[in-house]
């Protein structure tokens, strides 16, 4: 075996040299040295690829997938088949709204602070900015759904993450974008396809509001929920959707900052 052939075969797979390679190395100290170097290089490569630490909770998350996936599949089957047509009708009505006021109606005895109210107002205002996305969902034009990885690539920009891997199966995410909702703070805006139509989920990496509060205007109803390191805002055209999905969503959002 000549040197070129020897080098090519060794460098293609130093970890499993065949008998011919080993024989050639035994007969030629230069070949043996080259083989040793190549194997040392592979040991270093192996050490490098083994360096990224495995996330401590990844094993548990993966083991939980069968249970959560089956639960999600059950929920998907249970969705009413007339969902789309009902929301197509509402979309037509929604398109008729030309000018929108964002007056909030507060249901709490203890009023939130002015700063907290301003944030809610900005969140509602943002929804009108995203009206094309909502309309596209209602007409079925926005059918593609985001994967968990795609969703989290957006949420991580707001210092948050979706911790429930099966949620995208249960509530398909049709829109995900790191929107600017409150100036100066990172935020993520997801629009989920819920049983009650599009459900906006906004995660904002700012100071949690002093207390949870509800808001609404002529079109939307919302819920502002203080969380560990920011705020979770749910907004829907169907007020009942907020209570239906509140528990699932607050349990599905975590913080990475």
């Amino acid at each position: 075996m000549n040197e070129i052939e020897f080098r090519k075969r060794v460098l293609a797979d130093p970890g499993s040299p065949d008998a011919e390679i080993l024989d050639a190395a035994r007969q030629n100290p230069l070949f043996q040295g080259f083989l040793d170097q190549a194997q040392q290089l592979d040991q270093n490569i192996d050490a490098i690829v083994s360096e990224p630490p495995i996330p401590a909770d990844l094993h548990a998350k993966l083991m939980a997938i069968p249970a959560t996936a089956e639960s999600a599949d059950d929920n998907v089957v249970a969705l009413p088949v007339h969902r789309k047509s009902r929301w197509q009708a509402l979309a037509v009505a929604a398109c008729l709204i030309v000018a929108v006021g964002t007056t909030m109606i507060l249901n709490q005895d203890n009023l939130p602070s002015a700063a907290d109210l301003a944030m809610g107002n900005q969140a509602l205002g943002h929804l009108y900015h995203e009206n094309p996305q909502l309309a596209a969902m209602n007409t079925g034009e926005l059918e593609a759904s985001f994967t968990l990885a795609e969703i989290n690539s957006v949420m991580m920009q707001a210092g948050s993450e979706l911790t429930n891997a099966s949620l995208p199966s249960e509530l398909p995410v049709r829109y995900a974008n790191p929107c600017l909702i409150v100036p100066g703070f990172q935020s993520a805006h997801l629009i989920l396809q819920s049983d009650a139509g599009p459900l906006s989920v906004m995660v904002i990496n700012n100071s949690p509001v002093e207390q949870e509060y509800r808001l609404s205007d002529d079109r939307f109803s919302g819920l502002v929920i203080p969380m560990e390191k920011g705020n979770l805002i749910l907004i829907s055209e169907q007020p009942e959707a907020l209570d239906t999905y509140r528990g699932t969503l607050t349990a599905s959002v975590g913080w990475t900052i």
Binding site: P52, P55, L58, K61, L62, I65, T147, L148, A149, I151, N152, S153, M156, E161, A165, T256
Partner: peptide, 10 residues
């Protein structure tokens, strides 16, 4: 790495 974790779950 955070994206990798999501990809693995997916």
């Amino acid at each position: 790495p955070p994206l990798a974790e999501d990809l693995v779950q997916e």
